[in-house]
Nucleic acid binder design. Structure first.
Lengths: 149, 149
DNA sequence: ATTAATTAGTTTAATATTGAATTAATTATA
DNA sequence: TATAATTAATTCAATATTAAACTAATTAAT
């Protein structure tokens, strides 16, 4: 009772790295995302708009893959953005099961200048690390994040 | 339209490190947490039980700080664990604003053997990195995660 | 001592998220 | 061609999450 977990050195090392990875991602992204409130955008809504801005119109399926959310959720996210006139759905005439989702002019005007400030925040957060450290962090994260199964 | 974000080298480096950090945390933890389903525990419920197992009975306030959730949410998480008889609330007689939350015998029997398997999963995931890399990842995550404001 | 401020926890309302079932369109197969 | 399987999106039910308002208990301040 009341004692910290006792494990082997190997276990402690892995647990430490894991918990720090999760905590860092959580605290950095919550700081980066704090300003989304000012546009009344959720993280998912921002993710959708940002994808559309930089990759062009996309099917909902692909948006789901891009922002790692279920298709049911994408329906709601796109619904809410559509209600605000920030995106629109266009039937894909080649394959009528799909919609293309694309930014409206209004949506583009909202997200474009905002995205620069978003990038500035990320740069500011990551500047806690040197260039070399940022690159090393990227490399290590990529290595550990890859699916192994 | 349809072009990836064009930024300075500094911006690209920061964006890359940031997105890889978030993705890695997300994919590693979703793989690690996949087995929680088998006990019908949510991530928050598991976090609460694990904290109680290793740190002993705690106030709900401290549980919230530990698993990074709002106090309203802790009420619900503890409610649901209590309904299943896995934890119990005990009024703190020193300060009657508080409850102590503690594992029941049933809860302890459930979480204890499960936790070993959980650790094994984390070790397995992190073994994609060498010892030195795990330590370096921990160091970099800690550095970038610290609040700067 | 009485009042004010603080603190822990609960409740409520709004929104987010998922997974499963469903609908509609397309492609494969027999 | 008719049927089966697949795919994209939607709907629904259950649960999670937060922020804000609220209750109850404690502490501080005048």
């Amino acid at each position: 009772m009341g004692t910290k977990y006792q494990g082997t050195k190997e276990e402690i090392r892995a647990l430490n790295a894991f918990i720090k990875l999760v905590r860092a991602a959580d605290s950095v992204s919550s700081r980066v995302e704090a300003h989304l409130d000012s546009l009344h955008l959720t993280v998912s809504q921002f993710g959708v708009m940002e994808s559309l801005l930089h990759l062009g119109p996309m099917h909902q399926k692909d948006l789901g893959r891009k922002i790692l959310k279920s298709s049911g959720n994408i329906t709601m996210v796109v619904d809410n953005l559509e209600k605000r006139g920030l995106v629109e759905r266009v039937k894909d005439e080649q394959d009528r099961r799909h919609y293309f989702v694309r930014l409206t002019a209004k949506g583009k005007n909202l997200i474009k200048p905002f995205f620069s400030r978003h990038v500035a925040r990320i740069v500011s957060e990551m500047s806690a690390l040197t260039r070399a450290e940022q690159e090393e962090l990227g490399r290590l994260c990529k290595k550990v994040g890859l699916k192994t199964d």
